[in-house]
Amino acid sequence: MSFLSELIKLVYQVDGDDFTAAGSASSDVKRIMKQLGMDSEITRRVTICMYEGEMNMVIHAKGGEAFVEIDDEKVKILMKDKGPGIPDLNLAMQEGWTTADETARNLGFGAGMGLPNMKRYSDEFQIETKMGEGTTVTMQIWLNGGKKVA
């Protein structure tokens, strides 16, 4: 029996000027996954990936767009911004490396954990960035047989 009768597609605009609202898209995805009766561990991983992505967009890129697709096999999250781009991806993927300013740290973020956390909690993680044009992060979380994250 199929878990979902059809593909669910969600689109969110992430407002880069509203720190208070940051996380509202992730909150909505979590609510929908709960309503669908999806596994709590999968929901937790999707939520963390998306929330870190949202915060990155707010902190570094003045917002962006998030596209979420849920089907029988996976949850796919695509987060696209038109920010400054990431100069050195290898450095950016290291825990603790950050270019975030004091404002981000005052929010409890900006300690160089965002991208590593997104990679840690997703089964597939891809990032494309171009200086002056923006960054796109794609994450997929399998509904069955995905990684176990302690």
Binding site: F19, T20, A22, G23, S26, S27, K30, R44, T47, I48, Y51, M55, N106, L107, G108, F109
Partner: peptide, 13 residues
């Protein structure tokens, strides 16, 4: 940490 992100984080977790 006293800002809405503390509440958001608790919600997510």
């Amino acid at each position: 940490l006293v800002n809405p992100q503390a509440i958001r984080t608790a919600e997510m977790m």
